[in-house]
């Protein structure tokens, strides 16, 4: 199953992922249309700065997922893609999910008492945030693919360190 991975040395902090996320979750699906909508579409990932690095924080769709376990209203479930998704119609706005999320990536709809989280873009092959990333800091791939790439780079480093 493909996941969103972050190449931590790549993020420039431009927040294009956030813009694309909010746009994808708008009715207009265009940036200029999205910003004019009420309620304003929300983005569901956050670029934060920690320890001198820019880090895009995305929902990890954990299993077991603390938010899913904690939701008192049954508004969070796991869909057939294995993604942890939130159902607005059942949300009561108790913010329990938001409190238990270890990444802090559950937000709220500003105009309503409703939580909002990543749905991994069900209408797209590649999530909007990944497509929008200008430096390819966000990667949508199988876990094995991602680590294989890291290993390959690391192998070069190790090989280069060998003294003939």
């Amino acid at each position: 199953m493909k996941e969103i991975f972050v190449r931590l040395d790549r993020c420039m902090g431009c927040r294009s992922c956030q813009m694309a996320c909010a746009t994808e979750h708008s009715a207009a699906k265009t940036l200029f249309g999205a910003v004019a909508e009420t309620p304003r579409p929300r983005y569901r990932l956050y670029v934060e700065r920690g320890d001198g690095r820019n880090v895009p924080l995305t929902c990890r769709h954990c299993d077991p997922a603390p938010c899913l376990e904690a939701c008192i209203a049954g508004a969070i479930s796991r869909d057939d893609r294995g993604m942890v998704v939130h159902h607005e119609d059942r949300c009561v706005g108790c913010w329990t999910c938001l409190m238990v999320c270890p990444y802090g990536v559950i937000g709220r709809k500003q105009e309503q008492r409703i939580a909002v989280k990543c749905d991994r873009c069900p209408d797209r092959d590649v999530p909007a945030c990944v497509s929008a990333c200008p430096t390819k800091a966000l990667v949508f791939s199988e876990a094995e693919e991602f680590t294989a790439r890291t290993r390959k780079v690391q192998a070069g480093v190790v090989a280069g360190a060998v003294v003939e």
């Binding site: 813009m19 940036l31 910003v35 304003r40 929300r42 500003q110």
Partner: peptide
Amino acid sequence: CGFGEMGVCCRNCMQGPCRIDPFGE
């Protein structure tokens, strides 16, 4: 870059670049 497209990126000083979040968050 959406911030640039919307004109809300300012690079006029070295405390920037600053961007205003058009989604209000």
